[in-house]
Structures are given as structure tokens and as C-alpha cells.
Amino acid sequence: MYKSDEIIIAGFGGQGVLSMGQTLAYAAMIDKKETSWMPSYGPEMRGGTANCIVIVSEGPISSPIVTKFDSGIVLNQPSMEKFEEAIKPGGVLVYEASTIITAPTRTDITVLKIPAIDEANKMNKKQVANMIMLGAFLELKPILAMESILSALKKVLPERHHHTIPLNEKAILRGRELAAEQLTVSNTI
């Protein structure tokens, strides 16, 4: 069977979870991989939460909708409650630690705790929290080339926001640093 990464990205509407997913999907396309992006559009989005499923695969993608995930990027408490159990054993979970109060209890997955909102506020742009999360995820799982991610940003962001691309890049790098620090610490334990 070919390699495939099934990723859930979840949070509140407005946190940029859908555009984070689109950035991954666009980068996958640039990297000549098969990819699909599927937003929540059903009853689950009516409560203010938003999520999308992104699949990055070496071969054809069957269903764009899956219920178990290799990776989770989670930005709010309700999504943490919903998706912690949906991560496959051996998978990864990157969560936003400034607002999520209950840390995951799973021991069979790799967990990264990223205070992305606090970090974004330090950069004076709270909108880039999603990119910090994305950077952290890509440090943990480098499934796509960083230059593809940066090219993808140009496709995903509307032209009127293109002046924010350098800041988004900086946020992605900050996310990678935060993840790298944590991964080094956990390796020494």
C-alpha cells in the first residue's frame, strides 16, 4: 500500500483552519502528490467550530472523508474533545496550548504543545497563529517541501493579503522552532 497522511485540522471559525488545510493541499499539489481537502459543511459547523480533512498521498485517494487520522492539528477545546480519540495509534497531535485547558492523555501518540496564540500576539498579529501551528506540524512531520508551502501561500491568500506573506513565513518558522525545541527535550528524556 502507498504512503498516505490523513490530517484533521480543527478549531473555531476565523482561526484559519480551512486556509491552513488549503495551504497543505496546494503544497501537496506543487509537490506532485495526490491530495484532497474536505471542509466540514454539515451539522458540526453550525456550532461555531470548523474543521477540514486534508489527505496527502503517494497514490489515488479513496474517500476524502475519513474518521481516523494519522495527524491532528487542533486549535480549540471542543475540537480537542472530539478528535483526541480519532488519532490513530502512533499518530501525531499538535495542539494550541494558550487556549486548550485539558492536555491530551493519550500515550500512544506523539503530542506537541504549541502556545501559538500567545506567540502570534508576541508577533503583533494574532491571525498568524494558524501558520505557527502549521510550522510546528511540518517540523514534526516534514511531508512537504518548505518551498512548496511558501509557494502555496501565494495561491491560498487573496492578492490583497499578499503583503502579509513574509509575516506568515516568519510564523511558520517560529512554529518550527517551537516544535524543534520540544522534540529535542523529549528526545533527551
Binding site: M29, T35, S36, W37, M38, P39, Y41, I61, S63, P64
Partner: peptide, 10 residues
Amino acid sequence: DGALGQMMEK
């Protein structure tokens, strides 16, 4: 169907 309508692909 709804999934084909909503999903993004190349």
C-alpha cells in the same frame, strides 16, 4: 454528491 461538490482536488 455533496462530497464531490465540497472537496478540493487538483
